[in-house]
């Protein structure tokens, strides 16, 4: 028999209570139980970063964390970062600088970049590239993603 455990997590500002199997990955709980499918799964090896969300303000790979570990934490997904009529500065940067092609990597890229700018509002290009080491993009070649983040940083420091 599978035993479940009760968890209480604040997701995008809303308190969510659930019974989960201990082995439920945070990304599966977000996508399958909460229908927050903006967080993607791009690999089985914790390497691609498509699943990055913020847990208590820190960027984490939600495929490499059990939902049970998020009990008592505040989680922000791409859905909670900005609103359609009030984009987050990084989302706006991706829009302005054409920072995506297929868009699969984009939610993770944006969540990683948002954490970077929260810590370091005026990063150098090298710092931006270093911060993106855990996020893979198979389309853009990264240049426009870096420009998108530079655009967001300019807006943030202006």
């Amino acid at each position: 028999m599978t035993t479940t455990m009760a968890i209480k997590v604040t997701v995008n500002g809303e308190t969510r209570v659930a019974d989960v199997e201990p082995r439920t990955l945070l990304v599966h709980w977000l996508r399958e139980d909460l229908a927050l499918t903006g967080t993607h799964i791009g690999c089985d090896t914790s390497q691609c970063g498509a699943c990055v969300v913020h847990v208590d303000g820190r960027a984490v790979k939600s495929c490499t964390m059990f939902a049970a570990q998020a009990d008592g934490c505040a989680v922000t997904t791409i859905e909670g970062l900005g609103a359609a009529d009030a984009l987050h500065a990084v989302q706006d940067g991706f829009w302005e600088e054409h920072g995506l092609q297929c868009g699969f990597c984009t939610p993770g890229m944006i969540m990683t970049a948002a954490e970077l700018l929260a810590r370091n509002p005026d990063p150098s290009e090298a710092e931006i590239r270093h911060a993106l080491e855990g996020n893979l993009c198979r389309c853009t070649g990264y240049h426009n993603i870096v420009r998108a983040i530079q655009h967001a940083a300019k807006g943030a420091t202006a």
Binding site: V52, A59, V60, K61, E115, A131, E133, G134
Partner: peptide, 9 residues
């Protein structure tokens, strides 16, 4: 080590 998300956990 790794990348920012790896270092955060």
């Amino acid at each position: 080590i790794g990348d920012p998300a790896v270092r955060n956990r």
